[in-house]
Design a protein around this nucleic acid. Structure first.
Length: 448
RNA sequence: GCGACUGUAGCUCAGGGGCAGAGCACCUGACUGUGGCUCAGGGGGUCGCGGGUUCGAGACCCGUCAGUCGCCCCA
């Protein structure tokens, strides 16, 4: 079997039903984001490669889709452009470029595809959409809270009832690692191991830490600092972290921030959903403060985010505070499909009515009838050939269209349209002037 | 990037050296003004690709590409 018609590896075609599902979710996402005062932004699919390199850590550099130099440089294998890897770095570039003209607090949402040269897996692709919200220009924990609240609203509107937002802070993590005696050069690699706690267990994390160069004693101590024992309430975790951190200055600041976020969030939809989780690390290296990840029970991450106060500064002088959240559209769609969470209106058929064509001479009349119905807001598909009526009915049935119109010799003479309801099999002659209203009424009563 | 498994009709898969198959889907008819159900018939294949072994390869061997699942990493 030829494989040449398959899309490129990790890429997907979206057939009509797929597009409807995606559009439904994106409608909800944009509506919620707009309500929080975020404005839309779009950036190019392609960035200069220097814009992206060094922003995502070593693993990130490897996964960037690079575009080779064109023309005479083609043979060198050198890349000067790359496909967008996420939406956060392009945002930082935009902020640096248009700093003078953007509002003091620039709140933007961005829903576009990103590309990663990763190995495709279930719910994971090389081209996928992210739905980002970010707020630039404020260090206030209000930003963290609003961003989490927006994400909570989105998931609730989509019908998710069993998700939590895990919350942690990069400086608290560093403080805990310092306290355990893990050298600073090993912090990043240690966090990757600790992030796997719920996957490989406590002993697995210790093994992994040692494998990554952390001394056995420090590894054990670090694990102890991160492992939640006993009371897992936010209050209890805060208290425990406070004693573990002691007088560590930056970690104490981080803890204050976490406390503020938890307190402020009580006034928002995110309040009951935030769970302080010391083992949350997150991969991207540009986070500097609070970090969060939204997870559905038994499924895993639907998205994440955090504060990155130094990223914009990598494109211009001076630091510009920033914080945001990114929802993974594909993960959301996978879970919603598995759970049958789409409303019937999303999976409905392409048309309300199929206008059958009696014979070649009736084509004009069929088109005129379709126009009449469309003007009334109905979705009408015209059968293009004068096939046998049975064949046209079969087509209507296979397309899931509810009504079919037939204008044969008898109807033509009587000035009526025969309307067949495919769901019941019954049919009714309706005066031509009343067909549109008649059909609209039936369709409305059904969908209501 | 590393390891394991799988590539045969549009889809799901059987066949493991001797004529290329089944179910579903599709098309035609039974049904000259009507879909679903039933019955009868029909079309459809570079057996992923390249090489090798053999009188003979879909099957065995080597390579390659693609897919799936772990590892790694991530949304």
């Amino acid at each position: 079997m030829s494989t040449s018609t398959q899309p490129a590896r990790g890429m997907r075609d979206f057939l009509p039903e797929d597009v409807r599902r995606r559009a439904y979710v994106l409608d909800v996402v944009t509506d919620v984001y707009e309500r929080y005062g975020f404005e839309p932004l779009e950036t190019p699919a392609v960035e200069n490669i220097e814009t992206l390199l060094g922003k995502y850590g070593d693993e990130g550099n490897r996964l960037i889709f690079k575009i080779l130099k064109r023309g005479e440089h083609e043979q060198t294998g050198q890349a000067d452009l790359a496909l967008r890897y996420d939406l956060t770095v392009p945002l930082a570039r935009v902020v640096a470029e248009y700093r003078g003209t953007l509002p003091k607090f620039f709140k933007r949402y961005q829903i576009q595809p990103v590309w990663r040269a990763d190995r495709p897996a279930r719910g994971r692709f090389r081209e996928f959409y992210q739905c980002d919200v970010d707020a630039i220009g404020s260090t206030s924990p209000v930003v963290e809270v609003e961003v989490c609240a927006a994400v909570s609203d989105v998931l609730e509107r989509l019908g998710f009832g069993d998700f939590t937002i895990r919350l942690n802070h990069r400086e608290v993590l560093r403080g805990l690692l310092d306290g355990a005696g893990v050298p600073e050069t090993l912090h990043d690699t240690a966090l990757v191991a600790i992030d796997k706690l719920d996957k490989i267990g406590a002993s697995g994390v210790v093994e992994e830490l040692v494998a990554r160069g952390v001394g056995p004693g420090a590894a054990r101590q670090a694990l102890e600092a991160f492992t939640a024992t006993g009371d897992a309430s936010n209050e209890a975790v805060l208290a425990r972290l406070s004693t573990q951190i002691g007088s560590h200055a930056s970690a104490t600041d981080g803890l204050h921030t976490l406390r503020a976020i938890l307190q402020l969030s009580q006034a928002t939809s995110a309040g009951p959903l935030l769970r302080l989780d010391p083992s949350l690390a997150r991969g991207l290296s540009y986070y500097t403060g609070a970090i969060f990840e939204v997870a559905v029970d038994g499924i895993g991450s639907l998205g994440g985010g955090g504060r990155y106060d130094n990223l914009v500064g990598m494109f211009s002088s001076g630091s510009v505070p920033a914080c945001g959240f990114s929802l993974g559209l594909e993960r959301i769609l996978v879970v919603m499909s598995e759970r049958g969470m789409f409303p019937a209106s999303v999976t409905r058929s392409s048309a309300d009515v199929l206008a059958t064509v009696w014979n070649a001479d009736a084509l004009t009349d069929t088109l005129a009838l379709a126009r009449l119905l469309r003007a009334a807001g109905l979705r009408v598909e015209v059968y293009p050939d004068a096939d046998k009526i049975g064949k046209q009915m079969k087509y209507a049935s296979s397309r899931g269209v509810r009504f079919a119109t037939i204008v044969g010799d008898d109807e033509q003479a009587a000035g009526t349209v025969m309307v067949k309801d495919l769901t019941t099999g019954g049919q009714t002659p309706v005066p031509r002037g009343e067909v549109a209203a008649w059909l609209s009424r039936r369709l409305q009563s059904q969908s209501a």
